[in-house]
């Protein structure tokens, strides 16, 4: 079967592989046993910082807050030279314009959540307009949520068609598909939703909105990474991964990098293919970088507010 054909041959998603939950959890816990020290730790930390989608998704967001976040994205910690910027800023569609303007030609992307984030409970034409609005405002990337209700009801075609429709509305913007794994319940369903999203054209699959607990965990990310691997072997197309929510410590972030390297390989170890959706992670990473450079444990009040 040729590559182009395989994309159109839509499989029966109810036949997605079943996941061994105990096995996945055990495998994920092994990644936390690797020891990363000194030079490699410093490089790992810089890579983590460079993979962060610095996020503010709150009802109380103001343009001032978004501008402040953009400044932090461009200047994470000027006191120490050689620190990379984050990958992107993640905001609501109404804030895309101000973010885009503030970031200018810094190279930092603007991502916008769309499709009635975080619930996704809106008619399709509203979701498409939401997406087009964000893209027209200048969003480089859009993060959509899947219709979890339809998914649970077994209406996989609806979910597939919706993702495909949003992908079409995105144009050149890259599409991240949020599965909201905390609402899916089982690893089997996470795997199935991952398969649907990738088959429908997702550029990234993303664990969570950050509004539901549990958000990203290592086992659930492992299940999604393996889905990406299998999809790559089947179609030759790379898909990115974005765990979001609940990753606030550098050490945990480094464990994720180990997992990406050992499941997908080094091709995924850059911010084109892997992202962290986080807000407080950035400051912790900065504190660890300064700790590595100076040998002195750091205090939060010497770093900018996030």
């Amino acid at each position: 079967m040729k590559r182009s054909e395989s994309l159109f041959a839509i499989p029966d998603f109810s036949l997605s592989p079943r996941i061994d939950q105990v096995g996945a959890e055990e495998r994920a816990s092994r990644f936390t046993k690797r020891s990363i020290k000194k030079e490699s730790k410093l490089n790992g930390l810089k890579l983590v910082l460079n993979m962060i989608d610095l996020t503010t998704l709150e009802g109380k967001d103001t343009e001032g807050k978004v501008r402040q976040l953009c400044y932090k994205a461009m200047h994470p910690h000027d006191a120490v030279p050689g620190i990379p910027t984050v990958a992107a800023i993640c905001v609501y569609p109404s804030m895309v314009k101000v973010a885009k303007k503030t970031l200018g030609d810094s190279g930092i992307k603007v991502a916008s959540v769309v499709t009635a984030f975080p619930s996704g409970q809106a008619p399709r034409d509203v979701k498409i307009r939401d997406t087009k609005f964000a893209v027209n405002e200048g969003a480089d990337e859009v993060d959509m949520v899947i219709s979890r209700g339809k998914f649970h009801a077994g209406d996989y075609n609806f979910v597939f068609d919706e993702i495909a429709a949003i992908k079409e509305a995105c144009g050149d913007a890259r599409l991240k598909v949020i599965l909201e794994t905390g609402e899916l319940g089982t690893f089997d369903k996470v795997r199935r939703a991952s398969d649907i999203a990738m088959q429908a054209g997702a550029d990234f699959i993303k664990t969570s909105t950050g509004k539901i607990q549990p958000a990203a965990t290592m086992p659930v990310t492992l299940v999604m990474l393996e889905a990406i691997r299998d999809f790559y072997y089947k179609t030759g197309r790379m898909v990115g991964m974005k765990p979001a929510g609940g990753i606030s410590k550098s050490k945990l972030a480094l464990h994720y990098l180990v997992m990406v390297k050992e499941v997908l390989g080094e091709d995924w170890l850059n911010n084109h293919w892997f992202r962290f959706g986080a807000s407080s992670l950035a400051n912790d990473v900065l504190m660890q970088i300064v700790k590595e450079k100076t040998g002195v444990y750091q205090a939060a009040n010497y770093f900018s507010v996030d």
């Binding site: 002195v296 444990y297 750091q298 205090a299 010497y302």
Partner: peptide
């Protein structure tokens, strides 16, 4: 030395 140089 750790007791005295911790920034926090």
């Amino acid at each position: 030395s750790w007791f005295v140089d911790h920034m926090d």
